[in-house]
């Protein structure tokens, strides 16, 4: 199984369409989930902890903040995939969630390159290069996600992009509404 996973990961970089089609058929959900979790852990370790370290007056150790961030990133990714699945169904997508999840999770693999790029941005004088690389990795991951959705749900490229944009907008609106509702008692 490990060799297969490595082959798929390599395929994501060099021949993504074919690999995503195979992934949506074979549906390796567990390796996909583990990959997503590994990415959540690595990106959280590299990310800044600007949020307050106090919650209800209790100081939270940075390790717990890191773990919280990793779990939050993983859960958020899965939730976003769920939203994308629902929206793509409205746009005529076919196939089940397991196939889409497997393909889209593997499509996140290039985010691994974002971790050293983020480290580079902390080096004095290399912040701009690190930032540029991080941006490039982000774009690359998004494009692969669109291709993965297209191949797994048999949608057109345009519909796949629309599915992601709509799901992201819906996410933002939900978060904004939650913030407003939370702030209402203070008004």
């Amino acid at each position: 199984m490990m060799e297969k996973v490595l082959d798929w990961l390599y395929g994501v970089l060099v021949s993504p369409s074919e690999v995503f089609r195979r992934l949506s058929e074979e549906q390796p959900v567990r390796p996909a989930g583990l990959l997503l979790l590994l990415l959540a852990v690595l990106t959280s370790a590299a990310g800044p902890f600007d949020v307050t370290e106090e919650f209800l007056g209790i100081e939270i150790p940075r390790v717990w903040m890191f773990l919280g961030s990793a779990i939050g990133t993983f859960v958020g990714s899965v939730a976003l995939m769920g939203a994308v699945f629902a929206v793509s169904a409205v746009f005529g997508g076919t196939g089940g969630f397991a196939g889409m999840f497997s393909a889209v999770a593997f499509a996140q693999f290039p985010a691994m390159f974002g971790v050293p790029a983020g480290l580079l941005s902390r080096v004095p004088g290399a912040a701009a290069i690190g930032g540029l690389l991080s941006f490039g990795v982000g774009m690359w991951t998004f494009i692969l996600s669109v291709i993965a959705l297209r191949e797994s749900r048999e949608l057109s490229t345009g519909m796949s992009v629309l599915s992601y944009v709509t799901a992201a907008l819906a996410f933002i609106i939900v978060v904004a509404v939650m913030v407003v509702v939370a702030l209402l008692p203070m008004l």
């Binding site: 060799e3 490595l6 082959d7 990961l9 390599y10 590994l38 852990v41 690595l42 990106t43 370790a45 590299a46 990310g47 890191f66 691994m112 390159f113 971790v115 050293p116 983020g118 480290l119 902390r122």
Partner: peptide, 22 residues
């Protein structure tokens, strides 16, 4: 190819640890 993928993951892991330490 498999070694390449393993190297990429390894570099990412080392970068993450270094970032956390920094």
């Amino acid at each position: 190819r498999r070694i390449l993928v393993i190297v990429v993951v390894f570099i990412a892991a080392v970068s993450a640890v270094l970032s956390f330490y920094l």
